[in-house]
Write a protein that binds this DNA or RNA. Sequence first.
DNA 1: ATTTAGAGTGAGTGATTACTCATTTTAGGG
DNA 2: CCCTAAAATGAGTAATCACTCACTCTAAAT
Lengths: 229, 229
Amino acid sequence: MINMEQHPRIRDYFSQDLADNRDITPKQRAILQASLDLFAEKGFEQTSTSDIAQRAGVAEGTVYRRYRTKEGLRDAILAPLATNIAPMLASDFSKDELHRRYPSLEAFLTAIYDDRVAFVLANQKEIKVILEMVAFDQARRNQIIGHIAPVMVQQFGGVLNQLRADQLLVPWPNDLIIQTILSMIGGELMRGALTLPNDDPQRERTYVLGVLGKLLTPSATDDPALTQL
Amino acid sequence: MINMEQHPRIRDYFSQDLADNRDITPKQRAILQASLDLFAEKGFEQTSTSDIAQRAGVAEGTVYRRYRTKEGLRDAILAPLATNIAPMLASDFSKDELHRRYPSLEAFLTAIYDDRVAFVLANQKEIKVILEMVAFDQARRNQIIGHIAPVMVQQFGGVLNQLRADQLLVPWPNDLIIQTILSMIGGELMRGALTLPNDDPQRERTYVLGVLGKLLTPSATDDPALTQL
DNA sequence: ATTTAGAGTGAGTGATTACTCATTTTAGGG
DNA sequence: CCCTAAAATGAGTAATCACTCACTCTAAAT
């Protein structure tokens, strides 16, 4: 079972998803797990099928029994990530936190900020390889986003609507509010990834939360143009 | 010469930089240009040295004369991008637009938004391959960012200070304001890259500019906590 | 005209790659 | 215990890769 006490890890969800799948043999399971791990460690191109066979403890021919090419193997990794795991992760936040009724906008922003930052940091390598696998393939990108986006908009939409009903949130469209929150969090993670680690994370956190709070708090003098988007 | 009428292209700056370099032969120039082009087209790993030799019109041995490994060739591409071109591009905006005195915050935001969006769209493939080359190498990342960030902060800092002196901009630290603007623009470009092209770009633009305008306009009731960062 | 040093050449090399297939092992029903 | 079909095996293959090196070419100095 997955330990909900700590941050959710893509790798563990993937393992769980494999364990639940009765259509594949243990050796095929081991191949898929070894593939995800090695792709995350070294990248897709740098991982050879012989590497995978060795890590999975099977012969190289076994790798090719079910997935006839290396690209087929990649798709077999990406498929459960897209259909099962990504939506779970997108809504994972909801299980513990998202169904609460937040007393203030700040409480909500703080919760989502800490949760998403921790999630990205705990799954850096897996996220990196998913982006690598998906970077040159529009179709695969659409497939993954097509599963994540609706779940995310729906899950977050509930909390946002509640906050708005409580007069704690600006009356703008939910998709744009989500985009704004994720942009600010993503921008900070990007800065953290690009700069030497001498930046002050606490300063960043205070700023991002302060900015989002200021921006998304409703006010009497609000610009109606944004509301009508 | 580079045509300043259109959007600046990384490829053209690279060509220009090569032409200015008297230390390398024409064949070596052709190799570097062919390498950047092929890396942008197919990615670094998918490009073989024989591909490069063919595109450059030289023998394969010539590729290895100066740069003893393929990684050396990558570094020879990255070096001028980091030391000459990236800073130029970061401050390129300044030449035409950044030295003006903006009559309003909205005018400034609109200008920088349109400029940076156009730049990213005009250089998608080059940006992608630079990120690919730099993704697994913290040292190289620091090298590039070390050249871009100071130039950008300094150039934008001038305009931001002027806007602030004119009472058109919030009194927050410049690096955080720049981070915010780039986060919002980057978030929108990300959304554009991830979603099917059925989103309304005009709606996005209106929203991002509206949000940034609202956020960065000074007000009497402003939170002093952000100012003290 | 001769020398010389660096630039360029391209056939060749060994390593590695994704992938195949004839054969063996495994698991389960009769 | 036997039969069978699927699963697994691993030596083998053809292709490709980054890289080498003995050699030729070029151009400028002598």
